[in-house]
Computed example of a mutant assay.
Amino acid sequence: MNILYINNVMDVGGVEKCIIKLSKLMRANNKIVVATVGGKLEKELDLLNIKHYNLLNTDSKSPYTILKNLKIINKIIKEEKIDLVHSHHRMTTLYCKLLSKINNFKLIHTQHLCIEDKIRLTKLTLKNIPVITVSNSAKENLVMKYGLSKSNIKTIYNTIETTNNDYEIDKQLKNLNDKDMFTIAHISRLVDYKGIYDYLEIAKQISKKDTNIRFVIIGSGPEEENIKNYIKNNNLQEHIFLLGNKSNIINQLKYINLVLLCSYIEGLPLVPIESFSQGVPVIGTNIGGTNEEVIHGKNGYLVDTKDINGFIEKIMFIYENKDVYDEMKENSLEVYNEKFNEEQYYIKHIEFYSSILTK
Score class of each variant (00 low, 15 high):
316 M>R: 10
103 N>T: 07
163 T>M: 11
199 Y>H: 06
285 T>S: 01
279 G>F: 05
337 N>L: 13
167 Y>Q: 09
221 G>R: 12
316 M>E: 14
207 S>Y: 09
293 E>A: 15
200 L>T: 07
212 N>P: 00
48 L>K: 03
12 V>C: 07
119 I>L: 13
223 E>Y: 14
242 L>D: 00
303 V>D: 00
48 L>Y: 06
193 Y>I: 06
90 R>E: 11
350 I>W: 10
166 D>S: 07
25 L>H: 04
34 V>S: 04
349 H>Q: 06
236 L>R: 02
359 K>G: 08
209 K>N: 11
98 L>K: 02
270 L>M: 11
94 L>S: 07
151 S>T: 10
310 G>S: 04
159 T>V: 03
307 D>V: 01
6 I>E: 00
115 I>W: 05
94 L>H: 10
125 T>Y: 11
127 K>I: 08
11 D>P: 04
101 K>W: 10
70 L>N: 12
308 I>T: 00
278 Q>S: 13
19 I>L: 03
11 D>Y: 12
352 F>R: 02
30 N>A: 01
355 S>W: 08
267 G>Y: 03
184 I>Y: 05
236 L>C: 01
4 L>P: 00
163 T>R: 10
67 L>W: 14
220 S>N: 14
28 A>H: 15
175 N>S: 15
89 H>T: 11
282 V>E: 04
103 N>G: 04
196 I>K: 09
338 E>T: 14
8 N>S: 15
307 D>Q: 02
188 S>V: 04
31 K>Y: 08
52 H>V: 08
354 S>H: 13
306 K>I: 04
111 Q>L: 09
114 C>G: 13
25 L>I: 03
134 V>C: 01
126 L>H: 11
290 T>F: 08
197 Y>W: 11
263 S>R: 00
116 E>N: 15
312 I>S: 02
300 G>Y: 03
93 T>H: 11
270 L>Q: 05
84 L>A: 06
184 I>R: 09
172 Q>E: 14
355 S>Y: 09
289 G>W: 01
82 I>W: 13
178 D>W: 07
243 L>E: 12
332 S>T: 00
32 I>T: 01
330 E>H: 14
220 S>V: 08
96 C>H: 12
83 D>P: 03
265 I>E: 07
163 T>D: 14
150 K>Y: 10
229 N>F: 10
262 C>W: 05
107 L>K: 08
202 I>K: 05
289 G>F: 00
182 F>P: 06
268 L>D: 00
192 D>E: 14
314 K>P: 09
342 E>Y: 13
223 E>C: 13
95 Y>Q: 07
296 H>Q: 03
200 L>H: 07
158 N>H: 12
136 N>C: 06
337 N>S: 11
30 N>S: 05
129 I>K: 10
187 I>C: 01
231 I>F: 08
318 I>W: 05
59 D>Q: 15
3 I>N: 00
102 I>L: 12
278 Q>I: 01
73 I>Q: 04
126 L>R: 09
253 L>Y: 04
87 S>W: 08
